[in-house]
Write a protein that binds this DNA or RNA. Structure first.
Lengths: 208, 208
DNA sequence: ACACGAATTGGAACGTGTTTCTATCACGCG
DNA sequence: CGCGTGATAGAAACACGTTCCAATTCGTGT
């Protein structure tokens, strides 16, 4: 068996092995994370459970993601990168920048509210993260800002046409959105209140 | 020494006992929490350490505060109530509402940045809190909103003169402030960036 | 084919939040 | 004064994140 394995590796094996097996492990880990988070939220994402479901050893899981927070922030980052790719590839409907920004924010919010436990898990992790996760946090922030600036413009944007002020505005809007999301996740506010709050904020900030 | 204590308790002691002894325990617990948080931040606030420093049993600590998060959010709440009392008792300097709001926000921020570890502990707890702590979270939000609406008006306010829109505005500003604080606590942004971000946000929202 | 270093496994072990249990203590009441 | 009830002390036990280790397997250069 060992020899057979080594044979197959030496032929076609070399292609899918090496870093490819590692990509596969990483994917299995993130998939397991999503599945567990979707079912039971933050508390259900237990490192032993993730390792078991992903069929890796606990030590391996920790080699790939140095902590539960890193793991969940990576998952959140991936979701945001994908969302940003989807949203930024097309035109955003709406006549004013406020309308367009609200369109994407509500779309994002609806998407996350469709998976409450998953959202709770990812959001709690993001909020709890400290500076050791700064890379992931920064990446999420970049995606968020990109989504909002893109919506402000309404279509594909040349990066050079975005002013510092617009980035600052996008960051403020991102802050409000995040706070609203946290409020919803922690059961402080209901979905409609979240939407209304975002309406208020965006219309206050973008009045053109 | 022990006998002396028991004597003083049996004379004047009966008066300060009963629920008074409980108030005292509660105070000792919160004092221990502040002390530990000030030294070592969130991680240093360990329930066993709090119990020992407050001279109560672990079970008693849990009777008063059902979780570490409850404990720290209560501490944060107390700080906010005190800050709101101090700030709302006097006139806020500044010619425009934006100036006044920025004055109090920067004052608050400076105060918290003067005790980085304590701030880190309280903020992390607040961000991590779930719906079981909704009471404390709500209380903190009320204090925050009161501080901001008071600053918007510039002096003592009759509650009835505050419109819903003003409350909504105050909440948005509170959101931004909280996000900025979290960014600073988690080492994502420096103090000056935090201040600049708040400047941007408040001037965007309050342009009168 | 072989040897060596890196990655992975399986599992024990540790720290800290949380729960639980029993004995003790304090205080109001007959 | 003794009693009963609830609060507290003291300590063990459990759960989960995290660390660590020895043995094994994998991938690679020779």
């Amino acid at each position: 068996m060992t020899t057979a394995n080594q044979l197959s590796e030496s032929t076609a094996g070399t292609a899918d092995n090496g870093s490819s097996a590692q990509r596969d492990r990483r994917k299995r880990i993130l998939d397991a994370t999503y599945a567990l988070a979707k079912e039971g939220g933050f508390d259900a994402v237990q490192m032993r459970a993730v390792a078991e479901k992903a069929e890796v050893a606990l030590g391996t899981l920790y080699r790939y993601f140095p902590s539960k927070i890193h793991l969940l922030v990576s998952a959140l980052d991936q979701q945001f990168v994908e969302a940003a790719q989807r949203l930024n590839a097309r035109e955003i409907p709406g006549d004013t920048s406020a309308d367009r920004v609200l369109y994407v924010l509500k779309r994002l919010t609806r998407g996350m509210q469709g998976d409450p436990k998953l959202t709770e898990a990812l959001t709690r992790a993001f909020m709890f993260a400290d500076s050791s996760v700064s890379e992931g946090i920064h990446s999420v922030g970049m995606s968020m800002t990109a989504i909002v600036t893109h919506a402000m413009h309404g279509g594909p944007v040349d990066e050079s046409t975005i002013t510092d002020e617009q980035i600052a505005i996008a960051r403020v809007i991102g802050d409000v959105w995040l706070s609203a999301l946290v409020g919803w996740v922690t059961g402080r506010s209901k979905a409609e209140e979240t939407a209304a709050h975002m309406d208020t904020a965006v219309h206050l900030i973008l009045r053109d």
